[in-house]
């Protein structure tokens, strides 16, 4: 390939969960605005952030993700009334669990992005990638 790459730079793998109505639409908005952001985050679409089962997050780490990000509708904007509030509750619970596995809190981020916030989406994603880059690769079970 022609592009120059720093072979030494750590490129984290991050999994993102997006709800169909707000954060997925924000990612679409970032796309139509053609606002570039790092390629490290792979998104999974769910209908509601309330669908994000803690086991999905654990599966992501197991499959080699260095970080996970869950993006929901702002409080009060949830298409399903309050699924986002369920999601934030589960995220809080997850953080306590992850601590026991020795996984840093910063590797599991929760944030709110509305359908119109293409700009915020890009900055949240860029910030997450920067954070995980600084933390370095996630090592589980001595791997």
């Amino acid at each position: 390939m022609n592009t120059k790459r720093n072979e030494n730079e750590f490129e984290p793998k991050i999994l993102g969960f997006l709800c169909n109505w707000c954060s997925y639409a924000a990612a679409d908005k970032a796309g139509t605005m053609q606002k570039p952001y790092p390629a490290n985050v792979h998104f999974i679409r769910v209908m509601c952030s309330g669908r994000v089962d803690p086991q999905f997050v654990l599966k992501a780490y197991e499959e080699g993700a260095d970080g996970v990000i869950i993006l929901a509708c702002h409080p009060g904007d949830c298409h399903y009334k309050e699924g986002n509030l369920k999601a934030v509750g589960r995220h809080n619970m997850l953080l306590r669990l992850l601590k026991q596995f020795g996984i840093e809190e910063e590797r599991c981020r929760f944030d709110y992005v509305s359908a119109s916030e293409g700009g915020k989406f890009v900055s949240v994603i860029t910030d997450m990638v920067g954070t995980v880059k600084e933390l370095g690769p996630l090592c589980l079970n001595g791997k």
Binding site: T3, D28, A30, G31, P36, A39, V122
Partner: peptide, 17 residues
């Protein structure tokens, strides 16, 4: 398109993604 082609400038990274 929205989640890859339009937001990733490096064609190699975009193709991988």
């Amino acid at each position: 398109r929205e989640h890859v082609a339009w937001v990733i400038s490096d064609i190699c990274k975009a193709s991988d993604k």
